[in-house]
Design a protein around this nucleic acid. Structure first.
Lengths: 192, 192
DNA sequence: TGCAAAACGGAGGCAGCCTCCGTATATTCG
DNA sequence: CGAATATACGGAGGCTGCCTCCGTTTTGCA
């Protein structure tokens, strides 16, 4: 067939299956309990041993990355889409709002976004890179048209976003946070 | 002397002394390790049993409140002072900057500030109340002169502040955060 | 079918949270 | 001063969560 066969055997079926189970369980547990939820709870929900979880995902962050890879990719793609057809500043605002809404549904997303700024190097995956780049271009576009200040990095923006989403367990937080985000975007604009 | 004597005996000397020791230890441990530092470490540093710590401060938050009461009062007083002699928006900015600098020195302060928005009722102390009021007046002053928007509450402002201070362990974060704060204050302003 | 490689499970060691209660000590009063 | 008693102290103990390590099981391959 191919040379790979000579080097590696095909991945074990139970391993593939268990990985999926762990991701499903983690998605559930993190969405409900937030990023600090117990990893043993994840393993329990997956019906697997804790050792198996750690073999698949050596750190909590690695698990975040895998669980929310899809969402992060979508956010990156959305940012890319917003680059055309929408006014630069509006694009920024829309994108940030989309983030808030995603976090509202899946609490764990916060941690995944934070990864885009914490950069633990070894798991700085493609999706995170794409996200950061896309946001950077969103910012740059607005800078190029002299609409916003130029001293804010993509990381700064994401950090601010994550920060404003934090601390909000109380009901109705979403409205407040969206307002704070609007204030922030307004603050980015150069006063004409 | 007075009727109190008839009802209660004078507080035990060791109790008074130990309370001080615990506060000193907590100040040290929280400033270094942040608000999540181990309470047992606090007790150890104070040279006291963990039970003693819990008897004095039933919850972590109660300890925060006591440890940072002084700082919170100073922040409140500073806000009150800024109400005169400084332009409304500048006053806001200055006050927020002071917060960031305080948090930079004493990591635990973040948690104390967060208390001002989380309001666990039973320990919503005078100092926290004063702080919130003072910030509210700072905001109101700028609203009254039509300089900033009127839909941001003191709690919103403090939450945004705390959020932006979060997540910043990396060296040099202070500069970024101050910039984010400036952006935010700019965003509060009504565009003229 | 047998064998090696790969993956699994969970016990175990560690740390932190918080409670409970036997022991120690300060204050008060005779 | 010396009980008596209210008050505070200490830390063991039960619990949960983190993470590692290794004996056991399962899988893929020939």
């Amino acid at each position: 067939m191919d040379d790979l066969k000579l080097i590696r055997r095909k991945p074990r079926s139970d391993m593939v299956r268990n990985r999926e189970r762990l991701l499903d369980a983690a998605k559930f547990v993190f969405s409900a309990g937030g990023p600090d939820a117990s990893l043993e709870a994840v393993a329990r929900r997956a019906g697997l041993g804790i050792g198996t979880l750690y073999r698949h995902f050596p750190t909590r962050e690695a698990l975040f990355e895998a669980v929310y890879r899809h969402e992060v990719e979508e956010l990156g793609a959305y940012a890319e889409r917003l680059k055309s057809g929408v006014a630069p500043v509006d694009a920024l605002r829309l994108w940030l709002h989309a983030n808030v809404e995603l976090v509202a549904t899946k609490k764990g997303m916060l941690a995944a976004l934070a990864l885009a700024t914490h950069a633990p190097a070894d798991l700085y995956a493609y999706s995170l890179d794409r996200l950061t780049r896309a946001v950077g271009e969103l910012l740059q576009r607005a800078v190029d048209t002299d609409e916003i200040r130029s001293d804010i990095s993509p990381e700064d923006l994401i950090r601010a976003l994550v920060g404003m989403c934090h601390l909000h367990d109380q009901p109705g937080w979403q409205v407040s946070v969206l307002r704070l985000v609007d204030v922030f975007v307004d603050g980015l604009r150069i006063r004409g």
